[in-house]
Nucleic acid binder design. Structure first.
Length: 501
RNA sequence: GCGGGCAUAGUUUAGCGGUAAAACCCCAGCCUUCCAAGCUGGUGUCCCCGGUUCGAUCCCGGGUGCCCGCACCA
């Protein structure tokens, strides 16, 4: 465990040292749950997003893209259930450290002939009336009170006034005074639109990009020449006021999602095959951008833990140094979202299926993942320490497709102007196609190690053979450190093939 | 939110109630014909705000951030 936690620390430290990820607002002491991406980080993120967009949208016939706003009409979040679902007040027991949802914690005053003996508390359940009665009778016995127990009136904790809440014992310990007042855990960030700040101006920063897709479903169907089954994809920032952001960029309060809503015909025999198909497509994609296969897993949500509208949900997981966690959730959501929006907006969102000659609200498969989590998984997969001739070497073995820098271009030595000139010409040629770096400082080996640490897959070196011999250059492979001589044209084709598979 | 630990250069760490140090990295130059060679030079508000003190990076309080555990994660 200690070893594992130091691994993530090494990765975090490398990420900062080489300009991948910085803590947000660092010069002001930081801001919990927010991160900034540096020069290399922004390239890696862009490459991940581009690879996803390319593979999920452009290279498929059944997908179109969308870019909806971060702030939308707040009614969208009422329809989606986020306004209610995100505001559960929570109660903590200071002694037992248990946390309860205030609306699931019930309490009643125990009275005998009008005199109060105190309160009893318990968690919501079907049998809570009987259990509460048993607790009350036990209390009556313990205090040796004579008389008639009055009817108990169980009420949720959040509906009691503050004086009453102070009398309620913790369900865990039975002691009075250890429960905190209910506290709101509002996961949606609020803001105000317009100059006046009042209740009517409240808007939310989206907690997911998906609802922008549902809200535009009719627009896309009316204008996009799409036929079910088809999908709408979107990449964009989302915001959640997480209670406890943890694990570096794994759970942050501002993050970026890549989401697909894949619309399919209704019917219980339809969704399972599409669901399975998407799990396979997505897993293959992760492996394709260089995630270590052994670190990828699947986790099926048990039925009782599913949200009420979901038919199934399978997570694609990744074994991070701090544990195995969700990378992407692939949910079968039925037609919950479209039917909610149809109801709340009053607009007919039904799709006319020409092959079936009928109208329906399509069901949906939702593959949804975080750019930042993928970024971290790419980083963790790539981070390696090996040994070259007895020397320790740190490298990031990024797949060439996502590598922030594709190639380093070097003159073998810098005090020979012809070598420098030739290398700079090559650099400028490559620069028009890819993000590449030029470096002439120090010994060649040092420059190789330097690009290894930022995950540059190829090093191209101009030497005396290049300017005096056959014109070939040395192409050095990051992972094997093997070199081969290629003509400039061969080298370009070699790179192209590996960077854009 | 709770409990515990931590906070010194870009990184990893040393150190001290009296104007802060090493290694590596980075930048410039010299040298260098393929894997972190060498030489010279350069780069530091000891997380923030208070308090104690003649004097605080060090002691005390509060805050912020990070790590671990618990809880939470529609």
């Amino acid at each position: 465990m200690a070893k594992e936690s130091s691994l993530i620390e090494e990765i975090v430290s490398l990420a900062k040292r080489r300009g991948f990820v910085f803590q947000s607002s660092e010069i002001y002491g930081g801001l919990n749950g927010f991160f900034d991406y540096g020069p290399l980080g922004v390239e890696l993120r862009k490459n991940i997003k581009d690879a996803w967009w390319e593979d999920m949208v452009r290279r498929r016939d059944d997908m179109v893209g969308l870019d909806s706003g971060i702030i939308m009409n707040p009614k969208i979040w009422e329809a989606s259930g986020h306004v209610d679902g995100f505001t559960d007040p929570m109660v903590d027991c200071k002694d037992s450290k248990m946390r309860y949802r205030a609306d699931q914690l019930f309490a009643a005053e125990v009275k005998v002939d009008g005199a109060s003996l105190g309160w009893v508390s318990l968690l919501e359940s079907e049998k809570m009336e009987e259990e509460a009665l048993a607790l009350a009778e036990s209390m009556k016995r313990k205090t040796a009170t004579q008389g008639t127990l009055e009817m108990l009136s169980l009420r949720p904790y959040d509906e009691l006034d503050a004086d009453e809440q102070a009398l309620v014992p913790s369900p865990a310990t039975g002691k009075v005074g250890s429960l905190t007042p209910p506290r709101e855990f509002n996961m949606m960030f609020e803001t105000h639109v317009g100059a006046l700040r009042d209740a009517s101006s409240v808007c939310y920063l989206r907690p997911e990009t998906a609802q922008g897709i549902f809200a535009n479903f009719k627009n896309v169907v009316d204008t996009g020449r799409v036929k079910v089954p088809f999908g709408i994809a979107q990449i964009g920032k989302a915001f959640r006021n997480e209670i406890t952001p943890r694990n570096f960029i794994f759970r942050s309060r501002e993050f970026e999602q890549m989401e697909i809503e894949y619309f399919i015909p209704p019917g219980e025999d339809e969704w399972p095959k599409y669901h399975r198909e998407w799990i396979d497509v997505r897993k293959a994609w992760f492996a394709g951008i260089g995630l270590t296969n052994d670190f990828l897993g699947e986790e099926v949500h048990p039925k009782e833990k599913l949200a009420h509208y979901a038919k199934a949900c399978t997570d694609i997981t990744f074994k991070f140094p701090f544990g195995e966690h969700e990378l992407e959730g692939i949910a079968a959501r039925g037609n919950f979202d479209l039917s909610q929006h149809q109801e709340h907006s009053g607009k007919n969102l039904e799709y006319f299926d020409e092959s079936l000659k009928s109208k329906y609200l399509p069901h949906v498969i939702e593959p949804s993942l975080g750019v930042d989590r993928t970024f971290l998984a790419v980083l963790c997969s790539a981070y390696l320490i090996d040994e070259i001739e007895g020397e320790k070497r740190t490298l990031l073995s990024f797949h060439p497709r996502v590598a922030p820098v594709k190639a380093g271009v070097f003159p073998l030595v810098k005090n020979k102007p012809e070598l420098v000139k030739r290398a700079r010409d090559l650099y400028q040629r490559l620069q028009k196609k890819w993000n590449v770096v030029y470096d002439q400082g120090g010994a060649i080996g040092r420059r190789y190690r330097r690009i290894d640490e930022i995950g540059v897959p190829f090093g191209l070196t101009v030497d005396f053979e290049t300017i005096e011999g056959d014109g070939s250059i040395t192409v050095r492979d990051r992972d094997s450190t093997k070199q081969e001589r290629l003509s400039e044209e061969e080298a370009l084709a070699f790179l192209e093939e590996r960077i854009n598979p």
